[in-house]
Design a protein around this nucleic acid. Structure first.
Lengths: 255, 255
DNA sequence: CGCATATTTGATAGATTTCAATTTATGTGG
DNA sequence: CCACATAAATTGAAATCTATCAAATATGCG
């Protein structure tokens, strides 16, 4: 199942170059990483708590949640990951998992062996920098989740989450948005620190504002209205910063 | 004010080697970084939102909070940093600040120019790995804050925060703990997503369990009792993993 | 002492949870 | 394609937790 076909990793490279500037040589080195593709079922943990992992996971398809829980077993989703994300890229330097990773929909995962990733990072400092930076963006998203859960009411929390996901999916256009989100209301509750019952009520309130969530499809009639309710400022997603505007560990050759 | 006296950076090196295995050469390279020492007053922002920073900050003394806020200006502390921490090491690869950094007590900060830090990381992959890893531990702490704020009641949130800080300060011994924490109850409220009034009441409840917080000193009579209330599992702090048990980007010379 | 900041306390309002029941969707085998 | 079983979403009523408002008390400091 191991693959030497570099095309499999093109989406992985796309994600890296979206945020970091890489030379042709570096790009080819990334594409030549060995990768193993696995299928994960809905509700299946593919990384368990406390586990020592030996490869990083890249999401080729599907939705993945990072799950933590309190002592009574109530779950808290601390991150959502969409195709193109590496939910545990950090495991390359910190191999003990302190959260579980679970698929929220059937998912296709590419597993990249730590050994190979580390070798790549060692040989190409700019690639190591790209990895590091990717982890940092995840951490910035995480910080906003703390704000969301700590300082917003139920409706705003859900609105903010929907805005974030719409933006990450690139689904916003013409003051409107529509996208797939394979989550149940119970999942939404776990992500926002609420009860499923209250999520249902809050969604009802959002519905009156032209925001619907049926059959895993989110429709946002008036984007700016929802942005207001969710107090959403996309800055933290770092999506508007061009890779060539960033520093590089090593200066790139003149272009 | 720039310093070439390497002893100034010894605490910085100590922090790195606590979590990462570095060779003599690498250690000396770290110590030879240029650093500028600044004093920051209580309640002073030394990194402001949206700012493009040109150096990373190392806390030599004092307590620092990472502040975010919602649309109504209610503040949320998303991280607390103690001496030995680098609250914005991540800025080395992501220079736009998405949170403010504010001193909660008078603080001494060492500023390390990005240029020099990047040069160091480029020349020594294992040092780059140490930096990356340090950011990851911060992110793991952040994830636990989401759980704390999202899935625990007021008393448990505060208990958990006190447990975390006691552990990070290394203040736990003999089933008891005592340490300095230069925060007001309003700060505690900002960290836990609560109201100052409710923090006061919750502290009252903890007081009945032998936990006091007066004049910036936290006293925990029965450590295990508080651990229970706060549902505290120190695993995520990664404090018990020895640096030599971790991988290195480059294999160290035989020892 | 007197001002400014921090903490405590009480009473009340509001938000969210809990519990329980019902309805609606979804999937599966016959 | 229906019938059934299961999962997901909705609704109502009551309980609980947390916020809000306002006032009182304590604490630190010049």
């Amino acid at each position: 199942m191991s693959s030497t076909n570099s095309r499999v990793l093109q989406p992985f490279l796309d994600r890296l170059t979206k945020r970091s500037d890489l030379t042709r040589t570096e790009q080819e080195a990334v594409l030549s990483l060995p990768a193993r593709e696995i299928q994960v079922e809905r509700n299946e943990d593919f990384v368990r708590l406390g586990e020592i992992v030996v490869h990083a996971n890249f999401i080729a398809a599907g939705l993945v949640g990072r799950f933590d829980q309190n002592a009574s077993g109530e779950r808290q989703i601390t991150a959502l990951h969409i195709p193109g994300d590496m939910p545990d890229l950090f495991s390359v330097v910190q191999k003990t998992a302190t959260s579980a990773l679970q698929a929220l929909s059937p998912a296709t995962i590419l597993q990249l062996p730590h050994r190979a990733v580390r070798e790549l990072a060692r040989a190409h400092p700019a690639v190591a920098e790209a990895f590091w930076r990717d982890c940092i963006v995840d951490a910035m998203i995480l910080a906003q989740w703390v704000v969301n859960v700590g300082r917003r009411n139920a409706r705003s929390r859900i609105a903010h989450l929907l805005c974030e996901m719409a933006t990450r999916f690139g689904a916003v256009a013409d003051g409107t948005a529509e996208f797939h989100l394979t989550m149940t209301q119970a999942h939404l509750a776990d992500a926002t620190g609420l009860t499923p019952v209250h999520v249902s009520r809050s969604l009802g309130s959002l519905r009156e504002m032209g925001v619907t969530f049926h059959k895993n499809v989110v429709c946002i009639a008036d984007w700016h209205l929802l942005v207001g309710v969710g107090e959403f400022d996309p800055n933290y997603l770092q999506e508007d910063i061009k890779p060539e505007e960033r520093d590089r560990m090593v200066q790139p050759p003149a272009r």
